[in-house]
Design a protein around this nucleic acid. Structure first.
Length: 465
RNA sequence: GGCCAGGUGGCAGAGUGGUCAUGCAGCGGCCUGCAAAGCCGUCUACGCCGGUUCGAUCCCGACCCUGGCCUCCA
């Protein structure tokens, strides 16, 4: 039985979707006005892990993650770069997909763009106006009347009066209540605009998720995810919009991933302390990043530093070193050996996706492989198969071990390395250890580590940098 | 100021009312021509103060500190 921490109740709850074959999952994605950074990478990898695990557990999952392609930030950015909004967002979506693939993140089943759902959004707003939950203002905007929705604040644990007291929301003349939020924004000159019953304009940010989630998924949605920073007001507003319009519960379980931190504060574009995904992929390989991202629980803050990423690389290498040279599992029956390990891994993951604990199971499997690899090679190979299968749920251990450890790339120095090793082998045969050590040092100078195995065989791998 | 979350060994990071997390780093041993990798062992961690309990890092209360949200934000 999987249990999930539901942000709304702040408790772990049994995960019991009404239809196991069609779990409804919606995640708030990214706004495409700039390259994504490691904070977005965490969101992408965490929910990639969630989907992989649920599918491993036999659930059918329909995974929808939106792309915001019309927004207050996109418009000025397009003006800066001197291109149209459509051109900017198309370009950024392309780069986003490259980043996603670079991280080894599977594509969701649907990646709807906001601009493709104007009709649904307008219909939703009309319903809200009809039902008295929204009102058109004289300035052409349409606002949601927060006070009309009694459950407003339930998700994030806020009360309207408290919000008003501490409110930093700018007072807009047109709003009846400072907490009311825009469903529709009247077009300003030069902005992208769509026709609507309230004149030309564009949608507010929150309405797109309500429209796309209710259009593409069956409500109540089983799991709705997003970054912790979206809990208020974005998700609160989504609930208010969706439930007021449909008159039914919107989401069963809310899942929020913690934020990536740099030093003492969160990584954010507004703070300028971010590393983009593509920059990160240039410095660390994808699995090192995933290992780091999944090495702490998804709800905890996650600290970024070069030293922590180096630790992740080292840990991952330990797993690959255990896998190296194992060969395939001989047959199915030998795979029986892995069942207890599967059980422990699943117990960890069933408990609100406890990936750190799941990783510890992987490390213990690696140690067991190292213990038995000489005495019981078949058992070691079977364990290796299990280790790779479990690693795959986290998007790890998908490389060939030697390729990973050697970082085999386009560089053609492999031949040169092999020649050095052969020379050294001859030197060792004649017990010319001074020459053997000299060659080893020479290779080390090129970042190549040598490991002598039994029967004169020598393995090599690349040093971590 | 309000609302949340959290403070675990050198670092990272799980977890539990009374045996071990795990990884990295360090130290000792085995293995090795020497190394590396690996295995074995080791390094007596749970912010502070009270309380409950036979017993608390784990439960309760106060305090201190940190982060997030309260404005765009994954």
């Amino acid at each position: 039985m999987i249990v999930l921490f539901n942000s709304r109740t702040r408790e772990k709850e049994p995960f019991d979707p009404p239809d196991r074959r069609r779990v409804q999952l919606y995640v708030c994605g990214v706004t495409v006005y700039d390259d994504c950074h490691l904070g977005h990478a965490r969101l992408l990898v965490v929910f990639d892990m969630v989907v992989r695990y649920l599918r491993y557990r036999g659930y059918g999952v329909r995974y929808v993650r939106n792309i915001t392609d019309i927004d207050d930030k996109i418009i000025p950015r397009a003006q800066e770069t001197g291109e149209s909004v459509a051109s900017l967002t198309k370009r950024m979506i392309g780069r986003f997909h490259e980043d996603q693939a670079g991280l080894g993140v599977h594509r969701p089943d649907e990646e709807p763009c906001a601009t493709e759902y104007l009709t649904a959004m307008i219909a939703l707003i009309e319903t809200l106006v009809e039902r008295g939950f929204a009102y058109p203002a004289p300035n052409g905007d349409v606002y949601y009347r927060v006070e009309r929705f009694p459950a407003y604040g339930a998700l994030s644990g806020r009360r309207l009066d408290e919000l008003r007291v501490g409110s930093r929301v700018e007072v807009e003349e047109a709003k009846r209540d400072p907490l009311d939020f825009a469903l529709w924004k009247a077009a300003k000159p030069g902005e992208p605009a769509w026709a609507s019953p309230w004149g030309r304009g564009r949608p507010g940010w929150h309405i797109e998720c309500s429209a796309m989630a209710t259009t593409l998924l069956k409500t109540p949605i089983d799991i709705h995810g997003g970054g912790q920073d979206l809990e208020f007001p974005h998700h609160e507003n989504e609930i208010a919009q969706s439930e007021a319009a449909c008159g039914a519960p919107f989401v069963r379980c809310w899942i929020h991933n913690g934020l990536v931190q740099v030093g003492a504060e969160k990584m954010a574009k507004s703070l300028g302390n971010f590393l983009t995904i593509r920059e990160a992929l240039g410095r660390f390989d994808r699995e090192t990043l995933r290992f780091w991202l999944l090495g702490s629980h998804y709800r905890s803050p996650l600290f970024f530093s070069d030293a922590l990423l180096a630790q992740s690389r080292t840990g991952l290498e330990r797993l690959y070193l255990a896998l190296r040279g194992l060969g395939d599992a001989p047959n199915e029956s030998d795979c029986e050996e892995i069942h207890p390990w599967l059980g422990r891994f699943e117990a960890a993951m069933d408990d609100d996706f406890n990936t750190p604990e799941a990783l510890s199971v992987l490390f213990e499997m690696a140690r067991e492989i190292n213990r038995v690899r000489d005495r019981k090679p078949a058992a070691a190979a079977a364990l290796g198969v299990g280790l790779r299968r479990l690693g795959g749920i986290l998007g790890l251990l998908e490389h060939d071990p030697d390729a990973f450890l050697r970082r085999t790339g386009p560089d053609a120095d492999t031949v040169w390395i092999e020649q050095r090793i052969e020379e050294r082998r001859k030197a060792r045969l004649t017990r010319n250890f001074a020459e053997a050590d000299r060659i080893r040092d020479e290779l080390a100078g090129h970042g190549i580590l040598i490991e002598d195995g039994p029967e004169g065989r020598t393995l090599w791998r690349r040093d971590r940098q």
